[in-house]
Design a protein around this nucleic acid. Structure first.
Lengths: 194, 194
DNA sequence: GTCTATAGTTGGATAGAC
DNA sequence: GTCTATCCAACTATAGAC
């Protein structure tokens, strides 16, 4: 892994950027190639098919996204009950490029991803782990299992739906309004029902 | 409008179905043509370009979706305060084909739609009107302007995000869990803050 | 490991007969 | 208004020189 790592790395980085901007299906290997600055032979040497390139790029993007979420959610070393709900709120309110859409969530309506078992599984794993992490934090906040899972689903849905609203209306404030509406309800109801 | 209406209608219906299933960008005029059963000449007679076909199909899909939402939200002829919140809950809990994704929401990550001013405007108008309708119903329920708008954004985001979660996890219950988590909070907090 | 050249397919769109 | 035949560009991928 000397000069080859560089070409490979540049290809993956370029692919991540283009996939985020315009989706996997709509991005051709040729475009990635042009953006990365490497030659055509290099691309097909490191990634024999488009699937291989997509797997590397999507895997890297998912790993980044999950790490970012965990930085918000797993902040406290001990189980601090009062702080746990604040960590979920911090996750919800983290500044996001709303008009760009979620790099991972957008893949769920990308035909090229959902038709490929390997890629779809990576996306599935991301959301399963994210939901688990949010639910665990809500249990730390004192919520019973059922309510924690339901509210975790709601929290992640708010973020994903916020992206959709922002893109649809062309207004980043649409996402912030959705988060605000949900956070107000969430923080006023910290621990009843299931 | 005699036999031509039939061919045109079948083309639009086929396009709506295929766009919903696999997106606009991923659907070729040739596929629509094959699914509709009409000949190639017919397609290009009624719709000179793919844009024209997409505009007709997306317009029809958006009109259907908005009408469905209004059936849930505008149910009462007078301003029934206690009933209004129930109408929003009915909108949220309406059975949906969660694994298929939202026919309109998915368009927001479709490059072919967002790059086309005409198509994007149709999608934007749908969400603006939907948000207005939900917010109006929440004001009927007694919420002040600011809270009504924020919670309307949250409600629509829950539905859109619910679709994303269901598709991502391959589990229709993921959407139901998100709706349940939100509805529980919403119905316990009918009218404070802004 | 990287390059240029090119194969084979499908994309969107048009021509011209009927 | 509808048909078949066809054009050209872009796509994914391969071949073979360096």
């Amino acid at each position: 892994m000397n000069t080859s790592t560089d070409a490979r790395g540049r290809l993956v980085a370029a692919a991540q950027e283009m996939f985020a901007a315009q989706g996997v299906g709509a991005t051709s290997p040729r475009q990635v190639l042009a953006a990365s600055g490497v030659g055509q032979g290099s691309l097909y040497h490191h990634f024999p098919t488009k699937h291989d390139l997509a797997a590397a790029a999507v895997g890297a993007t998912v790993a980044d996204a999950l790490a970012a979420a965990r930085r918000d959610l797993d902040d406290a070393p001990d189980g601090d009950r009062t702080d746990a709900l604040a960590r979920v709120v911090a996750y919800l309110e983290r500044p996001r490029d709303a008009l760009a859409g979620c790099k991972v969530g957008r893949l769920t309506s990308d035909q090229a991803v959902m038709d490929d078992d390997g890629l779809r599984d990576v996306v599935t794993a991301y959301f399963v782990r994210l939901l688990d992490a949010v639910a665990a934090t809500l249990r730390d906040a004192g919520l019973p299992e059922g309510a924690a899972r339901d509210r975790a689903h709601a929290a992640v849905a708010i973020v994903q739906g916020g992206y959709v609203l922002a893109r649809a209306t062309g207004d980043p404030d649409a996402m912030r309004a959705a988060v605000r509406g949900f956070v107000t309800l969430l923080t006023d109801n910290p621990e009843e029902t299931a």
